[in-house]
């Protein structure tokens, strides 16, 4: 088990911000957009016309805690 548990005796190196930033911006935005589609699209705001997305994810929206109807 020594290979899967370790206690570092000295501070571990951090991932530099300039390496993180592009991922945080591009992946972060796409992931937030995905959450937006589950949580709020065709409710408070609408990027796509109609109500299909809202109706399709409807039960999840309620159960995941987003305001709906």
């Amino acid at each position: 088990m020594t290979s899967t548990t370790f206690v570092p005796a000295f501070p571990v190196p951090v991932i530099p911000v300039r390496e993180l930033l592009p991922w945080a911006i591009f992946a972060g935005l796409i992931l937030l957009l995905a959450i937006y589609f589950v949580g709020a699209e065709e409710g408070a705001t609408s990027l796509i016309s109609g109500m299909y997305v809202h109706e399709f994810v409807h039960d999840g929206r309620h159960l995941l805690g987003f305001p709906c109807h």
């Binding site: 992931l31 995905a34 959450i35 589950v38 994810v57 409807h58 039960d59 999840g60 995941l64």
Partner: peptide, 16 residues
């Protein structure tokens, strides 16, 4: 519908 909503939500939160 519920499956898609939950999977998208959880996968996105996992990535974040």
């Amino acid at each position: 519908g519920l499956f898609t909503a939950v999977m998208v939500y959880c996968t996105a939160f996992g990535g974040l």
